[in-house]
Design a protein around this nucleic acid. Structure first.
Lengths: 218, 218
DNA sequence: ATCGGGTTAGGCAATTCTACCCATGCGGTG
DNA sequence: CACCGCATGGGTAGAATTGCCTAACCCGAT
């Protein structure tokens, strides 16, 4: 082992950030070399510092999200390992992040020792997943059809369809959507039909559920 | 000043918990004497330790929420000061918690120094609010009608109405709700009308928004 | 015992949504 | 070019929702 593991912490919550920093700096072999409060900053700092690991929160309201930041970092610097530290126990996020090249996925409800274990594992090029994530992954492996279709279906929507999908889930009526988008109610109906078919949904409450489970509302 | 400020940290995220603990223990005059991962544990530990301050997260999924825990603690031990540390910048939470007797309200996105300042302020019986909270409070003071009515309105709903309200927000149709609750569609319509009137809502999307902003869905 | 709130339910007319069908124009691809 | 996906819109018929009114029953409080 050549020196300490150099880590960047990216999280929009300053207190979480400094808590993680303190925790990791208490480890002799780990050093937090920078912090970032949003996705853009995470990328900048990563390019500057060339760390071993970036610990990344998914939901960072200001600017770029953790998802996009992870993608950019892995494209620009594939040797930097990204460890996701989040509140969200959503299979959707998990799958997307693993595809983007994240090396670990751990919840904020994990123990200190688990976070440290995750950092060591990821720094060695291993993958660290918390138990529920591992379970999701196994299920995704066992039911590739269901997962592949269900979780990726949303991306098959066109931009306009996504826009209308969100408005439907938020409870706007066809008429209200038509007025907002300056199009005919008939057009909204057509889009709605196409959306429902693409996502294999039939009821409005399924739309809400779908959006809710993916954090698409707010 | 007689000795150090004794603090209990209640948060369902272990990493946040231990981060705050480390941060506060680094202060010579502050001592974290216990941790809790849900509302019930917060109450038990508070009764055991009789701390000066309980730092409380609002949303703790397992068991009792921070709201109920705050209420119980302030009823049983009014001399214990509760400092709310949360992600939610919602006036609704702020007002309710202040009414329940919380002494401070600070966001997880605050700086370490702000959290420490808050702990000192609250330990002296002062009130510490982050800037946005202070703004909400001033607005609430300036517009007592709007705030008092709007933010407390949900509690005026009967149990049955709350039940139906949630189902509406989740996107179920009147017919679906009627079938689920084994009542007539007409009854659902009546409840819906009463709910909308009580909450001063007219459109379905306002219902969704209302429920969403209060974390009533899931 | 009267009053009010909560839950239940119906009637009727107007509006909206759904479920089918269809068509046009545009841009990219085989 | 022919085809396909996308965004736009229309017609029609029937289902569902909304708005407004009424009303029964129960239960707890004044």
């Amino acid at each position: 082992m050549s020196g300490r593991i150099r880590v960047i912490v990216a999280d929009d919550h300053a207190i979480v950030r400094s808590g993680v920093k303190r925790l990791l700096n208490a480890e002799a072999n780990i050093e937090v070399v920078a912090e970032a409060s949003d996705g853009n900053e995470a990328i900048t700092k990563t390019l500057q510092e060339n760390p071993d690991i970036v610990i990344m929160d998914i939901s960072m309201p200001a600017g770029m999200s953790g998802l996009e930041a992870t993608q950019t970092i892995k494209e620009a610097m594939p040797n930097v390992n990204v460890l996701i530290l989040t509140m969200h126990d959503e299979p959707e996020y998990l799958f997307r992040l693993l595809k983007l090249g994240a090396s670990g996925y751990i919840l904020k409800s994990a123990l200190d020792s688990e976070l440290i274990a995750a950092v060591y594992a990821v720094s060695e090029g291993q993958v660290y997943l918390y138990p529920t994530a591992a379970k999701h992954l196994v299920e995704g492996f066992l039911h590739p059809l269901a997962n592949g279709e269900e979780h990726e279906a949303y991306r098959q929507l066109s931009e306009r369809e996504k826009e209308i999908f969100i408005l439907i889930a938020k409870g706007f009526s066809n008429k209200e959507i038509a007025e907002q988008l300056f199009i005919s109610v008939k057009t909204v109906e057509t889009h709605k039909r196409n959306i429902m078919e693409k996502l294999s949904l039939t009821k409005r409450h399924e739309v809400v559920e779908f959006a809710l489970s993916r954090g698409l509302l707010q």
